[in-house]
Amino acid sequence: MATLFLGMNANAARIDMVDVSNNNGYMSTAEYVSMRNEFGVKAVTVKISEGGTYKDPYAASNIANVQAAGMYINGYHFARYATKAQAIAEADFAGKTAKAAGLPVGAVLVTDVESQEANNQSQATNDRNNAAFMQEIQKFGYRADIYTSGSWANSKMTIKGKTGWIAAYPYVPAGKNWYSTNHAWQWSSTAKFRISYGGFDVSQLNSNYYTAGQKSKVKPTNKCAVKANNQKSNKNIYKPDASAKWVKETKTYTLKTAVKLRTGASTSSSVITILPAGATVKTDQAIIQGGYRWVRQPRFYGYGYLATGPASNTLEYVKSGVTHTYYTVKYGDSWWAIAQRNGLSMTTLASQNGKTIYTTIYPGQRLVVR
């Protein structure tokens, strides 16, 4: 079945599917169209919910805009369950939330199993819980699957052939079709798209499961751009910086203010998430470069990086909190108008809000202007 998705560069990992969540902010139809036409994206999987209470605020707009862009749509639920009863309850919550957000019947609704709750369970318990979730989710008319890391597959939980969406990030993706017997392989969390801000999780599809069980009918309009962008994304994107030296540091930090956790030890690296004040971070290495002291946090797959302060800070987290000034977008506003009103360039205004000047803004949205 993998032959259904062969691209022009057989030696490179393909960008067949992108997954998005509230961390990516509002995504316009134009952004999804660009992903399809210039990067060869066929399907998008959007976050629907987490645990038993959280509903992703961008799920409905992501679903609508992906469909408007003419791509296959799926959803995922970030699992927090530790028991069979909790798994069934979370499946009911995810199914109802997906229905309300507009996820169409027949789409895949994945259970994303990577939490500490799952890490604390035996393989047999995780298998039982995952099976209960997937059985329950099918009652809503959705197809089921499991997302987890390569290190957890068939270790923390059983992932059989012809099932599963597996995450594994090699330094150089090209040259090997990882997890070819599974439905999908997520090979990067830092892929860049031309008109979208930040890094994205991207996957190669090794079956037609995430394209409605049929050979994809999605066709890019610029095949040359797809080939070039695909090759660019595969070029040593995880090669570590050799200009500075990492040192061992096993330590637990308690953050005094919110901090951006990044994909690399640089302020230009993509933001994985924003850690709130009071959060604890366990680190294994530290480095001083680019004017900051950085620490490395081992994560479910790969690492996250955060600055603990200026390069002169060698012990505690000393960066002081930052007070922002916000502006609430009104009907008729534009990036240009808001930027001019606050003495900023459009690019600066968009960047400090985690967006680009091509991102749609809408009335009621709050933007950082100071």
Rank of each mutant, 00 (worst) to 15 (best):
L4A: 12
L6W: 11
A10H: 09
I15A: 12
V20E: 00
V20P: 04
N22V: 09
G25W: 05
G25M: 08
S28E: 00
E31T: 01
E38P: 01
F39N: 14
E50I: 03
K55L: 09
D56H: 01
P57I: 08
P57N: 03
A60K: 14
S61K: 07
N62F: 01
N65P: 13
I73P: 02
N74P: 09
G75H: 01
Y81W: 15
I88Y: 05
A101M: 03
G102D: 03
G102R: 04
L103D: 02
V105T: 14
G106K: 04
A107T: 07
A118L: 07
D127A: 02
N129Y: 06
N129P: 02
N129A: 12
A132Y: 10
Q135I: 00
I137M: 12
D145V: 02
S149G: 14
G150A: 10
A153F: 11
I159C: 11
K160M: 10
G161P: 08
I166V: 15
A167D: 06
Y169F: 15
P170D: 06
W178N: 11
S180F: 09
N182L: 13
Q186I: 11
S189P: 08
T190C: 11
G198Q: 09
F200H: 15
F200A: 10
V202D: 01
S203D: 14
Q204R: 03
N206W: 15
Y209G: 06
K217F: 05
K227G: 00
N230Q: 14
Q231I: 12
K235G: 01
S243P: 03
K248V: 13
T250C: 04
T250N: 15
T252E: 09
Y253P: 11
T254Q: 13
V259W: 13
V259A: 15
Q289Y: 08
G290A: 05
G291A: 10
R293Q: 11
R293D: 06
Y301G: 07
L306N: 06
A307F: 11
A311W: 07
L315H: 13
E316N: 14
S320K: 15
T325K: 14
T328P: 06
V329E: 06
D333T: 05
D333N: 13
W335R: 04
W335E: 08
W336R: 12
Q340P: 00
R341H: 07
M346A: 12
S351E: 09
V369C: 03
